[in-house]
Design a protein around this nucleic acid. Structure first.
Lengths: 191, 191
DNA sequence: GCAATAAACTTGACAATGTAAAGATAGACG
DNA sequence: CGTCTATCTTTACATTGTCAAGTTTATTGC
């Protein structure tokens, strides 16, 4: 299918090229025309698959999020208890974004996640990583036989998320090395 | 000085116009030419005061950070103890960015703070809000007569910062209403 | 006071970019 | 085979950051 008029799988190729460019030279330098050139198609070819630059970026975000989710789920899968799983998630969160800080800015900077959520129907209501944390947390409560009101649960979830996300933010911003640990007995968050 | 060839105080006018545009239509739509037009000068006039668009943006960031610092310090000034001051900082942090979420993305999204720090010699080493927190925290340790190693102190500071920053991030991203509270006895972070 | 110099601003130009419109190509399907 | 439709190209245009050269005003040295 090489050198043919039709690319074959241009849509995915554009997404991959976009990721490559972001990794190599950052999001600012990502242009539709460069992405098209990278795929050896004309500069307007992407418009057959995306209605705007923004749509391509959304697709790339989804792709990166998928990759992130794979790592999170792989880490969780190795855990025997929900408690361990939550700790593993925190570690994966930090290592994933420490390894490629550009992704952090790309996913959470600029446009907010909410906009991304609304454009992507696959995410029902929650951002997938957050949904996973929610499941693990509920499982954790079950395992420990802890009863909490809905509000208390939401607060705990936000607490965990804020802590990990905030630490990832610091790690990406300042290059600080951070690790994560959570001891349940008194709901304590430790670095 | 109106209608004269020389504007009089174009530099500040450009910064103010930039802030206005960001507030009205977001950072993406901020262009040098629009800023110049807003000030009724030609499109290249900004280059008499800034070497690039990036430099103007850095100046705007400094301006917004100054405003943020004023609010933080105003809140701190009303507190009798360092402990209260730290709590007040957390509240100000959240209310400031809840009130104008665009500033959060503008300050912390995209380019990281580190780049901003390096460009701005006024910030010696620490980001001013972080430096303020550091001072209050040290004062807090004195007040309570607590002795901690340097490493422990750094960890505590990152913990506090991550928590508050992470919550602000959630608030800005998802419009979640959040409040902040920190009880010292067991270094507990509560939403 | 006045000439020289520097600072602030304008004009014109250029390349890169997002996007739209119109046409070309090729595979799918009757 | 002929038509259709999705895919891709070409051309065109407006917006943008930036530069170079010129113009205007303020400042400084004499």
């Amino acid at each position: 299918m090489a050198d043919s008029y039709h690319h074959g799988n241009l849509r995915q190729a554009l997404i991959d090229a976009g990721i490559k460019i972001i990794n190599e030279s950052g999001e600012e330098s990502l242009s539709l025309r460069k992405v098209a050139a990278e795929c050896n198609v004309s500069h307007a070819a992407p418009y057959a698959h995306f209605n705007s630059k923004e749509e391509l970026i959304e697709a790339i975000k989804s792709s990166v999020t998928d990759q992130f989710m794979e790592e999170l789920e792989a880490g969780v899968a190795e855990c025997a208890t929900a408690e361990e799983a939550i700790l593993a998630m925190g570690r994966t969160y930090l290592t994933f974004f420490s390894r490629n800080p550009d992704y952090f800015v790309f996913l959470f900077g600029k446009q907010n996640i909410n906009a991304h959520l609304q454009m992507n129907k696959d995410y029902k209501n929650d951002y997938p990583p957050f949904a996973l944390l929610k499941r693990m947390y509920r499982l954790y409560l079950e395992e420990k036989g802890i009863e909490k009101s809905f509000e208390e649960q939401e607060i705990d979830l936000i607490k965990i998320w804020a802590m990990v996300h905030g630490m990832a933010s610091i790690a990406c911003m300042k290059g600080v090395k951070t690790s994560f640990k959570w001891n349940d007995p008194d709901e304590r968050l430790l670095v």
